[in-house]
Amino acid sequence: MQHESPIYYDIFGIPGFHVNLSNIIMLTVAALIVFCIGFFSARNLKMKPSGMQNAFEWIIDFIKNTISSTMDWKTGERFFGLGITIFLLIFVSNMLGIPFMIVNHETHELWWKSPTADPVITMTFAVMVIVLTHFYGIKMKGIKEYGKDYLRPVPFLLPLNIIEEFANTLTLGMRLFGNLYAKEILLTLLTGIGGASILGAAGAGIPMIAWQGFSIFIGAIQAFIFLMLTMVYLSHKVLDEH
């Protein structure tokens, strides 16, 4: 089963400015869902929380704890918004591809999927996070200290330190992409088997359920890992390690 992406070339007449419409739609849907979760949680705020507010407060505490585990809360407070947005957006994106999948059979274009199963999206987030770590590193420690960090712990590790930055970016994005892409592939295969014959449907039913359950687990874990690594990289750049 080979799925194509609905790519539209040269948007707005700008050469090389291509757009994967599926990614755009799915990302918008994910962002809308995240916003709705947040908005409806915060609609009826009470001192004695109930229902959605409780759930969202749990999420806030969870993000807080994750940040606190990598740096002190006074430093980490400014990254809270980044953390909660990244976590919720990636988590919801991961979940989107699990229940179903929409494919245009004539053109084999894949419309409904996890936007995080596309390397462009994940690498965008990864690069954005790494750029932010550099930005905050320079902002909070000064350009001199920031530069000196490349010569630590010993100067001859400079090349390794530079490579590390690229490696971090690549692994951060590719880990998320790889996991989610594998999830989508396996779901597609199982759907293919299940849709092929009655016997296939009988055989694929249980693995399908199992894999969907496992996908939820993968999605949650990967969102958490992305959040955790974001905070770890930030704390590396932001904190004095002496």
Binding site: S5, I7, Y9, I11, G16, F17, H18, V19, N20, N23, I24, L27, T28, A31, V34, F35, G81, L82, T85, I86, L89, P115, D118, V120, I121, T124, F125, M128
Partner: peptide, 20 residues
């Protein structure tokens, strides 16, 4: 995808910032 879809890059960053 065979090409890098830069539109997605811009869109996801903008979406992210708006969502934040």
């Amino acid at each position: 995808p065979e090409v890098i879809t830069w539109g997605d890059v811009v869109f996801s960053i903008v979406t992210f910032i708006i969502l934040l």
